[in-house]
């Protein structure tokens, strides 16, 4: 109420927060972050792969091994079982790329998660969609795959009228859509929250009326708290994206689960 009556600040148009000018023609900040993510991931694993594997792991090697074991123990073993260990490189790349694209949202002076733009989540979701459908067709055959998808075994025949269209839509449309939107909207919402509290505290700190300046502490605390929260969200969204990809692939490979 105080804010509305005494201090009303104009929120910038949302495109001003999200769309970036080209640094060089055809390449803007989001593209740069994507390239940097791939580069950082590659460098971590390159430097890890160069080190002597026999000695106790240190530095980047330790980091890389922790990530590999995290993917294998917490994602693949939990969802796909031992058969899925061959998917480690794909899921590891997915996790690392999504995480490294999320994390710039909280790094000072960069503060733009590349996944807060639709392009990268959409591409990754489509990629996962292609991969799990291709795996389903490869392991069950095109007829078997669609039959298992649309007519799941163990369901009363009368329910197929209801279930078949739901399953078809859910598997082929809602899965990639929700996969992309979940990541994108989480990161966008986090980014907007950070922007709002940053703008509010800045406006309060620079207010002409001196009595308003100390009030700026509150949105600033909120900003700090939300930044900490975004650290968690950046990790959690990468984890959820990867584990859902793993679940979808496992479901396509082994239809009984």
């Amino acid at each position: 109420m105080i804010i509305n009556s005494i201090l009303s600040f104009e929120f910038p148009p949302i495109n001003e927060l999200l769309r970036w000018r080209d640094v060089v023609p055809g390449l803007n900040k989001v593209g740069l972050i994507a390239i940097a993510s791939a580069l950082i991931g590659t460098l971590i694993f390159l430097s890890a792969a160069r080190k002597d594997p026999k000695v106790a792991p240190k530095g980047t090697r330790n980091l890389a091994e922790v990530i590999v074991e995290f993917i294998e123990n917490n994602i693949i073993m939990q969802t796909m079982g031992r058969d899925g260990l061959g998917w480690t490189p794909f899921l590891l790349t997915l996790f690392l790329f999504v995480y490294l694209c999320n994390v710039p949202g909280i790094i000072p002076f960069i503060q733009m998660p590349a996944t807060a733009r639709m392009a990268i989540p959409m591409f990754l979701a489509v990629l996962v969609w292609i991969v799990f459908n291709a795996q389903g067709i490869r392991h069950q055959g095109p007829i078997g795959y669609f039959k298992n998808m649309m007519f799941p075994p163990g369901v009363p025949k009368a329910l197929y009228i209801l279930i078949t269209p739901i399953e078809l839509i859910s598997t082929l449309i809602i899965r990639p859509f929700s996969l992309a939107v979940r990541l994108f909207a989480n990161m966008l919402a986090g980014h907007l929250l950070l922007v709002i509290f940053a703008l509010l505290s800045e406006a309060l700190f620079q207010a002409r009326d001196r009595i308003l300046i100390p009030i700026g502490i509150f949105p600033f605390f909120m900003l700090v708290f939300l930044t900490g929260f975004e650290v968690l969200v950046a990790f959690l969204q990468a984890y959820i994206f990867t584990i859902l990809a793993a679940v979808y692939i496992a479901g396509a490979v082994h239809p009984e689960h």
């Binding site: 929700s178 939107v181 979940r182 909207a185 989480n186 919402a189 959690l236 984890y239 959820i240 584990i243 859902l244 679940v247």
Partner: peptide, 12 residues
């Protein structure tokens, strides 16, 4: 986390 992901998708 899987359940939260599916539920949260609606809000998102």
């Amino acid at each position: 986390f899987l359940g939260v992901a599916f539920t949260e998708a609606l809000a998102l």
